[in-house]
Structures are given as structure tokens and as C-alpha cells.
């Protein structure tokens, strides 16, 4: 449920720090902001710190905001600046000869492309996030970790039959979201050892996976 950030009552509550509005903003943007920071810093911990700093500043300065676009813009700008500062510091410390690396990392076009990538993932992620819990766990094992059906079953402590049925369910659910057709199709063709089974919710027999 995305809150209506444009709503004037919402903005008023946000400025007063009320009614979980700050938490809503956090939920909405933290993931994409952290992804953006990771693109710059290539370090998970540092990226998390930078994002936490940006949200802290947002909290303390919440009175200045009058619309949602403004909030998002503020987060993006703070994160970009913080990342560049960090890179600059590192550059000094390492006294590396390619001293322009951080500047190269900040050409407007490059920044733009980072944002495009982040935005696209932000659009796709909810489809995975909204999968039922076990379904998602199976999906992540199979598609993200590249585990076989058997490995997934062992890791999650469920039967291979259950893995197969959850996998089909995940594929079905994702396919139903028209948006992901090409994505899931790509994934499935990638798993060439995978039996593509589009209609049945589960495959009854224990087919041996290679």
C-alpha cells in the first residue's frame, strides 16, 4: 500500500513527524537509495551508512519539505554527495595515481544511468517482494542462488515435491503479473535443466534433476 505522498494532509503529518509518515518514506525509498549508494561505493556497509545518514538528515530537516518529489530529490542528492565525498577521501588516503576516478564516476550521464538502473529495479522488485514467503524463498534459491531442486529442498528443509510446487507457483504468480512476462521467461529459459510446466501447480512425480 503506497501512501499518498502528494496529499497535503500527509505532508503536514510528515512535517510534524507524525503517524508513521517518516517510516513510510523509509519503506518506500531505502532500498533504491541503498542500491544507488552501492553503485557508487561498491561496499554494502558504507552504502548502508550513507543511506542512514540521509534519512537522519531528512528526519531532522523534515519541516522544510512541501512535497514528495522534494523528499525523493533530497535523498538522492544527499546520497550522491555523500558517496562522492567518501570516494574523494578514499582517493586521498590511497594516493592512487588515477586521481580522477571519483570525478569520472560523477559525470552527469553516469549519474543518470545509475538512476535509470535503480528505478527499473525499484519497479521490478515488488513482484518478488509480494510472493508468498515460502514461494519467495524457493524462487530466490533457484533463480538467485542457482540451486537445484534438491539443493533448495535441503537448504530450506522442505521436500523436493514442495520445492517444485512452490517454484511453479512463483512462476505462475510472476507470469500473472504481466509486467514480468519477459523477465520470468528469460529466467526460465536460463534454467535449461528446468522442466517448464506452465499450468500444473505441481509436478507429482519426483523427476531426477541433473
Amino acid at each position: 500500500m503506497t501512501p499518498n505522498f502528494q496529499d497535503t494532509a500527509w505532508i503536514a503529518a510528515f512535517r510534524e513527524g507524525k503517524a508513521g509518515t517518516f517510516e513510510q518514506v523509509f519503506k518506500e525509498y531505502h532500498r533504491s537509495m541503498c542500491y544507488l549508494a552501492e553503485k557508487y561505493l561498491l561496499d554494502k556497509e558504507e552504502a548502508e551508512d550513507v543511506v542512514a545518514d540521509a534519512f537522519t538528515k531528512l528526519w531532522h530537516g523534515r519541516m522544510q519539505f512541501s512535497d514528495a518529489g522534494h523528499i525523493k530529490g533530497f535523498l538522492i542528492t544527499s546520497i550522491r554527495n555523500a558517496c562522492l565525498n567518501l570516494l574523494k577521501q578514499k582517493q586521498r588516503r590511497s594516493a592512487s595515481n588515477n586521481e580522477l576516478a571519483y570525478l569520472l564516476a560523477d559525470k552527469e550521464d553516469d549519474f543518470f544511468r545509475k538512476l535509470v538502473e535503480t528505478e527499473l529495479l525499484k519497479k521490478l522488485y515488488p513482484f518478488i517482494e509480494q510472493l508468498p514467503k515460502q514461494c519467495r524463498a524457493v524462487f530466490e534459491q533457484v533463480y538467485f542462488e542457482g540451486s537445484s531442486i534438491e539443493e533448495t529442498a535441503t537448504k530450506l528443509g522442505i521436500s523436493t515435491r514442495n520445492v517444485r510446487s512452490q517454484k511453479s507457483r512463483a512462476e505462475q504468480l510472476l507470469r500473472d503479473k504481466i509486467l514480468l512476462i519477459s523477465f520470468i521467461y528469460c529466467l526460465m529459459s536460463m534454467q535449461n535443466n528446468t522442466h517448464i510446466d506452465s499450468n500444473l501447480p505441481s509436478i507429482p512425480e519426483e523427476k531426477k534433476e541433473k
Binding site: 523509509f26 542512514a52 518478488i128 538467485f144
Partner: peptide, 26 residues
């Protein structure tokens, strides 16, 4: 397909809890 899956994987792996905790601490 391959690169997009990798990117989605890192996007999913972002630790909301850690970021929230760091924010709260500050």
C-alpha cells in the same frame, strides 16, 4: 536475463533492518 537477475539479486539482498537500525541509532 543474466545481468538483470544478478542486479535483482543484489537489490533483494539489501538489508532493510540494518539501515533502519543505523538510522534509528543516529
Amino acid at each position: 536475463k543474466t545481468t538483470l537477475t544478478d542486479k535483482l539479486k543484489s537489490y533483494s539482498a539489501i538489508n532493510s533492518e540494518a539501515i533502519w537500525l543505523k538510522t534509528l541509532q543516529q
